[in-house]
Design a protein around this nucleic acid. Structure first.
Lengths: 122, 122
DNA sequence: CGTTGACTTCAACAAAGGTTCAACCCATAG
DNA sequence: CTATGGGTTGAACCTTTGTTGAAGTCAACG
């Protein structure tokens, strides 16, 4: 329970349960995202996952992206531009956010266009 | 091949292949949508499907909706408000379009909010 | 020291959204 | 008349995105 206050831990990171609790996403889904390469974690000496704070961002983002129709593969692609140098800074997130906004807009625009055509041709 | 120019047909409707061709959606998917209740069709005397023109609208709409993250169940729900009186008119489509635009906007807004939080908290 | 709660892995299951295939029907062209 | 290019069905199969459960580890509480 007080797992994260552990000595080898008090500085280390979030447990899978904490990430689940703070994002509203099931722990099983979080482990799944990690298997799929959308998330990374460290391990404690007893093999438990410890996530860095940015995992919260990632998980929330993944969820919101899925709601606008992106697949995990597409999201992984987008996130992969974040990884190389490690420790994403504000501008990395900004850049990513811009990409995602663009993608989402294009899809909504396409829907709107279909809806317009539909109205005009009916 | 000249199936649709058939005598009992020349006024009737589009074949599944024609709908597929004109929408860019696979015939198998179109049959699937029909099984799922998103589409209806008449049958010729030899049991072939014949779609009315509005099926083209529906199929394109389904596709665009899926791209913005709506499930077939959600799309079916939206389309079901079209059916009762048959022969959807412009304002029926307009009403539907408004609903879908709203739904899509909400999802994108949520993504944008996450992206903003992410930028400000990083 | 034993129970409890959170963690681990692996495997099985599931629902959504289709695709593919085999087997069969049918109208038109040659 | 038969070969062809649609169309039909049903069953099997596939991917994606997870969930569930069994079996085991570990640290802390009493």
């Amino acid at each position: 329970m007080t797992w994260q206050t552990d000595y080898d831990m008090h500085e280390a990171g979030l447990t899978v349960g904490e990430v689940a609790g703070r994002t509203g996403v099931a722990a099983s889904a979080i482990r799944f995202y990690e298997r799929q390469g959308l998330l990374t974690s460290d391990r404690t000496s007893t093999n438990q996952r410890r996530y860095h704070a940015d995992a919260l961002c990632r998980v929330k983002m993944i969820h919101a992206c899925q709601r606008v129709g992106l697949t995990l593969a597409e999201i992984r692609d987008a996130l992969s531009h974040l990884e190389p140098g490690k420790a994403p800074g504000p501008e990395d997130w900004e850049h990513l956010a811009a990409r995602l906004r663009t993608e989402a807009s294009e899809r909504v625009d396409l829907l709107n266009q279909v809806l317009r055509d539909l109205a005009s041709s009916s």
